[in-house]
């Protein structure tokens, strides 16, 4: 394993260089300890295949997604316009995100405010790399025969119609992909969307993440695969709550890919 070096935009610009793609890390990917591991794995994949990329580092700020979904349009647009200024100053054209919420917001809601970029989610990047033959599943952990079930993030799946890319990333593992009863367009939310991540749930019979993890456990998986840092938190908590953390791992598509390639 080579050492990880994460280039920033400021650094690149100082060297008179520009990246092929900007990696938009997101707040969870930057601050949440569990999500930081996913962030580093995405960087390892980028470095492994030799894509020239950079991050904004401390110049990155919240996309405004949680503010917008919670109804605070002012705060959202303040964040969006400030971010667009930063992105445009660096003449960014293409962005990969590690979070479906950032992905959706920059891709769909920034253009109306003047920010036009080609935006992909990291599962789409991994799919492209696999399709182009640049990324395989070799030299690392074998997932052969393991039962993996993928939980569709709402803002990737229903929100933007991306269902195949994460599954393609899992298919190359030669694993046993199993679908939950509620999957793809009918997938069930982990419970974190719409700014629920930042508040206590309203009173009810059960927490949404427990219900969703129970659905996942019906497929008796070895791995529950995720593609969103919020889903990661909710699913991990659910698995813990149901005392299954010994037998069921919750892993992001990027982590699975990095492990399979020994990164």
């Amino acid at each position: 394993m080579t050492e990880l070096h994460v280039p920033t935009m400021a650094e690149m610009q100082a060297n008179g260089e520009s990246p092929e793609i900007l990696f938009w890390v997101g707040c969870a990917g930057s601050f949440d300890e569990r999500a930081q591991r996913i962030t580093r794995d995405i960087c390892k994949i980028l470095q492994h295949v030799g894509i020239k990329y950079a991050v904004l580092g401390t110049e990155e700020s919240c996309t405004g997604d949680p503010a917008k979904r919670a109804g605070n349009e002012f705060l959202f647009q303040m964040q969006a316009m400030t971010n667009i200024q930063v992105l445009d100053a660096y003449q960014i054209k293409k962005i990969v995100t590690g979070c479906p919420h950032c992905f959706n917001t920059i891709k769909n809601e920034y253009p109306g405010l003047g920010g036009h970029y080609e935006v992909i989610h990291h599962s789409q990047l991994i799919q492209q790399l696999i399709d182009d033959g640049k990324l395989k599943a070799e030299g690392g952990e074998s997932f052969k025969g393991k039962k993996i079930t993928f939980h569709d993030p709402c803002y990737l799946g229903r929100g933007n119609g991306v269902y195949e890319a994460p599954r393609r990333a899992l298919e190359v593992l030669d694993a046993d992909l199993v679908e939950m009863k509620r999957c793809r367009a009918h997938g069930m939310c982990c419970g974190a969307g719409g700014a629920q991540m930042f508040k206590e749930p309203e009173p009810g019979r059960k927490d949404v993440n427990i219900e969703r993890v129970e659905q996942a456990l019906e497929t008796s998986p070895n791995v529950i695969a995720a593609g969103c840092p919020y889903c990661m938190t909710m699913l991990t908590d659910g698995v813990k709550n149901l005392d299954k953390e010994g037998s069921v791992a919750v892993l992001d598509i990027a982590e699975i890919t990095a492990r399979a390639n020994g990164l």
């Binding site: 979904r69 709402c154 229903r158 929100g159 069930m188 939310c189 969307g193 719409g194 629920q196």
Partner: peptide, 8 residues
């Protein structure tokens, strides 16, 4: 405030 904006 119970909505997760999941579009289900």
């Amino acid at each position: 405030w119970a909505c997760t904006t999941c579009n289900a």
